[in-house]
């Protein structure tokens, strides 16, 4: 009996959940397919090779954050075709041509159908950049502290001689500004999310596992 049951359970002819509403953000639905597509294809412009893969849950949370920010901010941020084309190239660049087509076909997608996802990612990044890209100040003391506590030990741990503070200051300042802006953005997004109506359907997310 067990083999028969096993055969039945594994046979693709048995009903399987293929899609469901995994989250609602301000009354709009996010489907499991949306999240899978984003997990499959979407990377940000700062993505580097070697970055760890994101889980479905992480992808969902990021998608929700994007929706919340774009909904609540309501600023008319223009996204040009060139920007979406550039990001699309970045997404394509991770796959061989044949792999890319196979993955699109698996979802029944044409390349054009990815544009709404591309635009959402770009719009989100631009919104964050508009709010936190400028005006973040880093003090001389912060740079010095970072140089002493982080930069020099790290360089030494790699067997390298740390550059003098004068030479490393600009790089450290950029890094600190980026971190500070990121922290401010995260806090802001979290506060926006508290105002939004977000419902996650964990049962649907389980279907993907």
């Amino acid at each position: 009996m067990a083999p028969v049951l096993l055969l039945l359970w594994l046979h693709p002819g048995q009903p399987q959940v293929v899609d469901c509403i995994v989250a609602e953000v301000n009354g709009k639905a996010l489907t499991l397919t949306d999240v899978r597509i984003l997990q499959e294809f979407a990377i940000g412009p700062e993505h580097k090779d070697g970055d760890p893969p994101v889980t479905l849950r992480q992808t969902l949370e990021e998608a929700i954050n994007r929706r919340v920010v774009i909904d609540l901010v309501r600023e008319d941020i223009e996204v040009t075709k060139k920007e979406t084309d550039d990001l699309l190239l970045l997404w394509k660049g991770r796959f061989e041509a044949e792999q890319w087509q196979e993955r699109l076909a698996a979802y029944g997608l044409q390349e054009e159908a990815l544009r709404p996802y591309l635009e959402e990612v770009i719009r989100y990044i631009k919104t964050i950049d508009l709010r936190f890209g400028r005006g973040v100040d880093v003090s001389r003391q912060d740079i010095e502290r970072y140089y002493e506590e982080e930069y020099r030990p790290f360089e030494r741990s790699l067997g390298r001689e740390p550059k003098p503070l004068v030479q490393a200051a600009a790089e450290i300042e950029d890094r600190l500004k980026s971190e500070k802006a990121g922290q401010q953005a995260t806090t802001w997004v979290r506060s926006l999310r508290a105002q939004a109506e977000v419902r996650i359907n964990d049962r649907c997310l389980e279907q993907a596992r």
Partner: peptide
């Protein structure tokens, strides 16, 4: 129709709306 996941996803969103 040809079966496609994205069409299923679009259908779900229309029903939800």
């Amino acid at each position: 129709d040809l079966y496609s996941l994205s069409a299923v996803s679009d259908s779900i969103k229309q029903i939800h709306r």
